[in-house]
Amino acid sequence: MYRLSKLRFGFPIGLFLLLLLDGSISQSFSVQLFHYPSAMVSHLVVLWLVCGAIFEADQGEAYPMPLAVWAAIAGAVFDLYYTGIFGVYVFVFPVVIYVTRRLVLYIRPNFLSGLLIYFIDITIVEALGYLASRAIHLTTMSGSSFLVNTLGPTLAFNLAMFVILYFPIRWVYNWLK
């Protein structure tokens, strides 16, 4: 069924659109988002991936998507184009897919439990990204200031985005199916 649906092309197009939109949002609203010392980092691409996993679980076995592969490709583009350090998000994004797929086995996904799952996923993305950056001396930020200045605002921004975009993305997904 997946092989015949529009999702086969629609999912990667949406993925790359949101990946590039992350950068555009950071650029256009840099005054509001990167208000020193706190920083809100937009992760729309993670939202698209997580929503893919949630709606996939909602549909049952009829539409299994190669989500981990797309996540790795999106992570590779993120690494090469945005950060210039290859080998961080190319592993982090598939981990997010893996965690989400494990979680939806235990929690029946809907809007509110999706919010909870997305909270965990964003924490994983930011925490692993921070640990990797500390390991290769890209940042000297202390752990406590990471929690207060980056993780907190980023979670707030991305959960707000989840609330706004959950239903539109579900509509797009059902249309593509």
Binding site: G23, Q27, A39, V41, S42, Y82, T83, S133
Partner: peptide
């Protein structure tokens, strides 16, 4: 012209 900015809190980079 600036095309985009790295969505990251510590890597302040623009393309």
């Amino acid at each position: 012209a600036v095309i985009t900015r790295t969505p990251s809190s510590w890597q302040n980079q623009v393309v």
